[in-house]
Simulated scan of single mutants.
Amino acid sequence: MTHVLAARSWETLRVEEAEPGLLVVTLNRPERANAMNTPLGEELIALFGALEAAPHLCHAVILTGAGERAFCAGADLAERNGMDDEAFARQHYMFERMMRALLACPVPLIAAVNGAAFAGGLELMLSCDFAYAVDTARFAFTEVTRGIMPGGGGTQHLPRSIGARRAKEIIFTGEPFSAAEALDWGIVNRLCPPGEVLGLALATARRIAGNAPIAIRQAKKAIDHGLQADLRTGMQLEIEAYYPLIPTADRREGIAAFNEKRPPRFTGR
């Protein structure tokens, strides 16, 4: 079904169904280090809005950047040059909606970080469920060096990932950090040589796609919502996500496949 999205004409994105049910979304502005301009933000809102409305469209999404130089360098400051306050605020609100659209993605969203992820580009990565990166990647929140601060979730995602003290150092200094540090701190899950990150992400997405799709979506919902609550409330949210799986055909198929010693054939019902 993802061919519906892949067939659409996109100005700043490349959208491809790499395999049935696996969607690869590429930020496609390599001449600008895949920096976020207004059309790119609007297209990400449209794409992820469609996925939120129809979660059956795919099993997993991979977000990456074109070329080997950058995943995303953040907002395109050339576009912002000369913007008055009203236009700047209007564009930033659009970027806020873009980040919320990524967070609302109902299926697993994997970042395949092919190069530098700075400022809003790092926020894009942190809005994904998890990330793989090339071992030459660099990361930074550079906003304070430009008179602003992270405004796409960076001050919230980063402390939750690595702790407040380290996050404050990164955000207050604006200094870059390495892929090895990102791995050590748990910001990315795995590193690989340049040119291999998309294949690594696809292998994981393929494994995800072999599991029951409704169960994956419910598990993601339980994790995301539960992290915003205390433990007891989170456990209750988990149970509320669990019980709708009991009457599904996939739940019955999973048990039957185990007892019949064969791979399950999940249908998403």
Rank of each mutant, 00 (worst) to 15 (best):
A137S: 15
N114C: 14
F177D: 04
R14D: 13
D250V: 08
F95C: 10
G234I: 10
I255D: 02
P213N: 08
A167Q: 05
M99K: 02
C105K: 04
R206L: 01
E238I: 06
R14K: 15
T173L: 03
L122W: 07
L126W: 01
G67V: 06
D224C: 07
A75W: 08
V134Y: 02
I62G: 00
E253K: 05
Y242P: 00
A33E: 12
R160H: 08
R207W: 00
L231H: 09
I45E: 12
A131D: 02
F95G: 09
P213K: 05
P194L: 02
Y242D: 09
V61A: 02
P106I: 10
H92M: 12
G226Q: 03
A205L: 01
L227F: 05
N28V: 08
L109P: 01
L77W: 14
L158E: 07
R232A: 13
R32V: 12
A70W: 08
G199Y: 04
G154Y: 07
A18N: 03
E196Y: 09
L47K: 07
R29F: 04
P213W: 05
C105R: 03
G21R: 06
F48V: 08
T136G: 06
E238C: 14
L124I: 13
E123F: 06
G67H: 05
A78E: 14
L77P: 02
G195I: 12
I187Y: 01
T233Y: 02
A131H: 02
F172I: 03
A87I: 02
